[in-house]
Design a protein around this nucleic acid. Structure first.
Lengths: 150, 150
DNA sequence: GTTAATGCAAAGCATTTGCACACGT
DNA sequence: ACGTGTGCAAATGCTTTGCATTAAC
């Protein structure tokens, strides 16, 4: 058995476990979508993934791909890269600073902490990448939401 | 003269300078959009900003707000927070890892570097925030684009 | 057999485009 | 005066919704 096949088997078992744990059915669609996403590393959009998936499961609907992806994010089997609603957001502060997304109020707060800038810059070549800039996205609870939750 | 008024004046002078430097006209719309964005720290979407701007410049078009924001990003007066095309992208790898956006090929590459995970976690309370997770977005050139550019 | 998931069609937003008019230089 | 920027209307693209059908448990 080759490595890919073995990984896939493990991955599907994990998916099965996660679904069970959340009382979700392990449908063909969920399995194929999970598999198709797991074997690529190019961070596809829902639509790009749909194009792959439809060749394996003819008749699958675009809606299903969108829905299943959100479900998989919900059970922690997949992560979504981008700010949560995937809308463009703008900031007049162009100095280097970082952002905290509050899972309580869904707002984005600035994090001005100069120490963070030094912490990460040193490796300015990571495995052949020339890095010109970076930004850290934190997620958690802002002070206001913090006090509500205790 | 109060502090806000003074900041605004400086900001507008900077905008004027940036526009000149790029051969762009300093239009009323650009000024008001820049001002409106600069006085808030809540990282509005283009549409949210439009709602504010239209109360100050009746008749301004939504299109203009979208266009001007992109122009301002182009001259570095404003930054856009989110992945560049603001579409949702998905990743089956849920382990902590970071992302490099290549400005050459526009692809998002994974950066698996365990040292980065230790570097930043320590301050798990930043000014009252409880941080549960974080992710670093690098931008720069991937190895392939790097070799093309030299 | 029950309940939840899928598929379809259509609607809903966010964003972009093409072109005529107006404004900044 | 010239050329760029703006406004409008319409198109496009991504994503969501309501509801009937189908499949998983």
């Amino acid at each position: 058995m080759n490595c890919l096949a073995s990984n896939r088997k493990v991955m599907i078992q994990q998916l099965e476990g996660s679904c069970r744990a959340h009382g979700l059915a392990l449908t063909v669609q969920r399995r194929v979508i999970m598999e198709s996403l797991a074997e690529r590393t190019d961070h596809p959009t829902a639509d790009q993934l749909y194009e792959t998936v439809r060749t394996r499961l003819r008749g699958i609907s675009r809606t299903t791909v969108y829905q299943v992806l959100e479900t998989l994010v919900g059970i922690g089997a997949v992560q979504k890269i981008s700010n949560p609603e995937a809308k463009a957001r703008f900031d007049a502060d162009t100095a280097r600073h970082h952002h905290l997304y509050c899972v309580g109020c869904q707002k984005i707060h600035d994090v001005h902490d100069p120490s963070l800038n030094d912490l990460v810059l040193p490796p300015d070549r990571l495995a052949g990448f020339s890095v010109t800039d970076f930004s850290i996205q934190f997620s958690g609870l802002c002070p206001d939401c913090n006090s509500l939750h205790q």
